[in-house]
């Protein structure tokens, strides 16, 4: 977990409490470091496997409280970003429930910080949620589409959203429903489909895919997400928004395969395994919030390739 004390171009000071530096979290962190003057960055190591213990939560909240009281944060704008989480589409009920417990416990602690006036009540909470998970198995998802919560993972994401929406302490929030995120950075943890295809393609390894080559998905670049998050922090608007960060371009696995082969100039090998993870999911471009800039996937795959080699 990280805390940033930042200053924007109008010399206005903000604090950002950032939970989770994974794929999206790393992109958000590097965008914050690039686009703001960072006055202070505090790294609080968190073991997410142990955080469910009350003692660990207490310690974490105590460190946050110390920071907030030292910096008189009640008089400043603070943004809380929740990009933490280890669960995925195939996670079990037990694992997802544990993550929900951690989230609820920390969220309640943050609400207490608002109640105790360590945090301003106009502070904003940004939650990363799952667009594909909430509307699984549907194509051309639009504002009128109905939820389809088929898995423990999606039910937990939905409950997290409910927790934020129902909060009487956080007056402002942005719930960002993200489609399949990918990065152009070479990472060793939780590699997405695109990174796996490129990395294995270079090494002539076979990639295993749970689905089939016609499965359609929507892919969003991690830096497009972070750019939008930075925009939210910078604009600092009072809002209660649920937004879809999607590209609006349906892409099949076969198309991805062709793109990757084009870029790495090699044939890639894929093993398909039948699973219940192969349903099509696509979104209408009109769902994109104003200000979201999506970049070309082929260009980003090329960047990823160059980073790997």
């Amino acid at each position: 977990m990280r805390i940033y004390r930042i200053c924007d171009r109008f010399n206005s000071i903000h604090s950002v409490l950032h939970f989770g530096i994974g794929l999206i979290g790393s992109a958000i962190r590097s965008d914050i470091l690039q686009k703001f003057t960072v006055l202070k960055e505090i790294n609080i190591p968190v073991n997410w496997l142990e955080i469910s213990s009350p003692k660990m939560t207490e310690e974490l909240v105590s460190e946050i409280t110390d920071y907030l009281s030292q910096n008189n944060s009640i008089s400043e704008h603070t943004t809380v970003i929740w990009s933490a989480g280890r669960i995925g589409f195939t996670s079990s009920e037990e694992v997802t429930n544990n993550e929900l417990k951690i989230f609820k416990s920390l969220f309640a602690s943050l609400e207490q910080l608002v109640a105790q006036k360590y945090l301003n009540s106009s502070s904003k909470f940004i939650l990363m949620s799952s667009a594909g998970g909430l509307f699984e198995g549907q194509v051309n998802i639009n504002k009128t589409s109905k939820y389809n919560l088929k898995r423990p993972y999606t039910r937990v994401k939905f409950k997290m959203e409910e927790t934020v929406v129902d909060s009487s302490y956080f007056q402002n929030y942005n719930i960002l429903r993200i489609s399949s995120a990918y990065s152009s950075k070479s990472v060793d943890f939780r590699m997405g489909l695109i990174a796996t295809l490129v990395s294995n393609g270079i090494k002539n390894y076979t990639s295993t895919i749970y689905g089939n080559m016609n499965t359609i998905r929507d892919y969003i670049y991690d830096e497009d997400i972070s750019d939008y998050v930075v925009r939210i922090i910078r604009e600092n608007l009072k809002s209660k928004n649920v937004e879809f960060l999607v590209s609006g371009i349906p892409i099949s696995i076969f198309q991805l395969k062709a793109m990757v082969e084009d870029i790495i100039l090699k044939k890639i090998y894929i093993k398909f395994i039948d699973s219940n993870n192969g349903e099509n999911i696509s979104f209408l471009r009109s769902l994109q919030p104003q200000g979201l800039k999506t970049t070309d996937i082929k260009l980003n795959i090329k960047r990823l390739y160059l980073n790997i080699v």
């Binding site: 080559m213 016609n214 359609i216 349906p250 099949s252 076969f254 198309q255 062709a258 793109m259």
Partner: peptide, 11 residues
């Protein structure tokens, strides 16, 4: 058929 249209266009 949709998958074929998309696959052919991809190549």
């Amino acid at each position: 058929r949709g998958p074929i249209a998309r696959a052919a266009s991809a190549v």
